[in-house]
Amino acid sequence: MNTRPKALEILRAVGRLPDDRIDLAETALALAALDRPEAGFEPYHQHLAELAAEVADMSGRPLTLAQRVEVLRHVLADRHGYHGDTETYEDMQNANLMRVIDRRRGLPVALGILYIHAARAQGWEIVGLNFPGHFLMRLDHDGERVILDPFNQGEPKEPRALRELLKQTAGLDAELTPEHYATVSNREVLLRLQNNLKLRHLRNDRADKAAEVVENMLLFAPDHPGLWREAGLLNAHSGNLSAAIRAFETFMDLGSRLGASSQLLHQTATLVQQLRTRLN
């Protein structure tokens, strides 16, 4: 069995969807299958359905916000054992949703996708937040809201704890601002998941593998000009000059329509000229 063709089909379809119709868990599984094409989707679909069903079983009556939090934590953390991988945090498996489900541990954003899936299956309002260095979620209900940390068993985070977490990830001088509480789109959650893989490949001096990750990101975010420029830079660094030129040209086309600076467009055009010279 090779699930790669199916995974590519799913990701290209997601690239044509409006953001609010993106199924985070389904898309994350398709991304995972690109690295594990021998693994079938069905066991993971069954597990996602099981998580949603178990939360539903405990939600047969109207629940307060605090009770919804406890149900999510009980199902995902207590019953299924999901937790952050503090021992091998840099392991690439932690950003692959299939392996996260297999191992019951992973990065904050991968675990967050599971919490979001289980909550949204009930119609609950839950979103990811633009918190730097550590993915967090916000659950809203009946005029109340709470911020949850999927890496720490869905633990609610008060402002003081958030401030301490920010200083750990962004430096001792960092302070909370409204930007840190801003919500992120479904595509941004998925981009954040894949950025973890890209950065790990770059730290291992594998620009070619990082370029592959960016090209996979472009399947579900084809209108993201910054990604096209990044794909150009990574492919150029890896010596894949034709791919670099195509990516830069796509960036210039998108960027000119979406308001990229004239300076950046000019710099990119110069890069394309230089790459064409190297090809000839």
Rank of each mutant, 00 (worst) to 15 (best):
L34P: 02
T64S: 15
V55N: 01
P18V: 04
A52E: 15
A56C: 03
V14R: 07
D23L: 00
V55R: 05
L48D: 15
A25M: 05
E50P: 00
A39E: 15
S59F: 07
R12S: 06
Q67A: 10
G60L: 06
P43Q: 09
L17I: 09
E38M: 02
L31Q: 01
G15Q: 14
L29G: 02
L8F: 14
A7M: 06
R21N: 14
A7H: 04
A32K: 00
M58E: 15
A56N: 09
H45R: 10
I10Q: 12
L31R: 00
Y44P: 02
G40R: 09
L17W: 13
A30L: 07
P43I: 03
R21I: 03
R21K: 12
V14Y: 10
T27F: 07
P62Q: 11
D23V: 02
E9H: 03
L34Q: 06
S59G: 09
L63V: 11
L48A: 10
L34C: 04
L31M: 08
E54Q: 15
L65N: 10
A56M: 03
D20G: 04
E50R: 08
A33H: 05
H47E: 15
A53V: 04
G60M: 08
H45T: 07
P5K: 03
A39V: 15
E38L: 01
E50L: 02
T64M: 05
D19V: 05
A66G: 11
T27W: 10
A32T: 08
L31E: 01
L29F: 10
V14Q: 05
G15L: 04
P5S: 10
L29Q: 03
Q46T: 13
L8K: 12
L31I: 00
L51R: 14
G60S: 11
I10F: 04
R12A: 05
P5G: 13
L34N: 00
E9Y: 07
D35T: 07
P43L: 04
L34W: 08
L34D: 02
P18Q: 10
I22M: 07
Q46H: 14
G40T: 11
G15I: 08
